[in-house]
């Protein structure tokens, strides 16, 4: 996935169980709900949950479902829990396929995986699959270099002068940062550096850097967040 071209975002999407569509009372119930809060339902996206609804098998049936929901100002955008044949049929009706195991909020199921449709990435992504955040709980001593490849680095102790933290993602230091911290080492300009106390020798994001004497005196010794804003390293007190 080209990170620059495709951006992810999280959406809340209503899920309608396919079986309900054919329930005679469904349309009455639906219109009552929509009457109560018409704004909320205006053009709202809906995903059709096909669990236990093998009857839906042709593109035509999906097109009908789409049309039915359209009458109630709802936009059917995709299906979930679909069999391979159903995915294909739905695609024929212009519907996307959402992760088969995605939770169905309408059934108040397990809280475990929050609605994470495969098509919509959970947050602005750097990597298609991100390794686990690197966690360091011991003080990082002078002369030590830690590299969090392809991920974030979290240090819950002090980082000594002469130590170096490098991460492809963000760097968090819950302690005094006296050494160097280089976030977004592979060019991610969205990476940030956070520390409980800024005494750093050098901070860098995506190649832009500030050395110790360039750090504003009013930020030194404080908890700060460092980000790249308009190509400029910007330090804000937290």
């Amino acid at each position: 996935m080209a990170g620059n071209l495709v951006q992810g975002a999280v959406f809340t999407v209503m899920v309608v169980r396919a079986g309900m569509l054919r329930d005679p009372e469904f349309q009455d119930e639906l219109s009552r709900q929509i009457d109560r809060s018409p704004r909320f339902f205006q053009n709202a996206p809906v995903v059709l949950d096909l669990k236990g609804a093998e009857a839906f098998a042709t593109a035509e049936e999906f097109a009908q479902a789409k049309e039915l929901l359209r009458q109630y100002t709802l936009a059917l955008v995709g299906v979930q829990n679909a069999l391979p044949a159903q995915v294909e049929a739905a695609a024929g009706a212009g519907l996307a396929s959402f992760a088969p195991n995605a939770t169905n909020p309408s059934r108040r199921q397990a809280p475990a995986p929050e609605a994470q449709p495969a098509a919509a990435a959970p947050e602005p992504e750097r990597q298609p699959s991100r390794p686990q955040t690197r966690l360091v709980t011991e003080p990082v001593r002078s002369g030590t270099q830690i590299y969090a490849r392809g991920t974030d680095l979290v240090v819950t102790a002090a980082v000594s002068a002469g130590a170096e933290l490098v991460a492809d993602g963000n760097i968090h230091v819950y302690g005094t940062l006296r050494g160097r911290a280089l976030a977004g080492a592979r060019g991610d300009a969205g990476a940030r550096i956070f520390c409980s106390r800024l005494e750093a020798e050098l901070v860098s994001i995506a190649g832009r850097y500030l050395v110790s004497e360039q750090l504003p005196a009013e930020q030194r010794g404080f908890a700060v967040e460092i980000a790249l804003v308009d190509e400029q390293l910007t330090i804000t007190r937290n």
Partner: peptide, 13 residues
């Protein structure tokens, strides 16, 4: 102090 810090790191690793 800095050299000691370095040595502590070496002891730990």
């Amino acid at each position: 102090v800095r050299d000691s810090d370095r040595i502590i790191g070496i002891l730990a690793s």
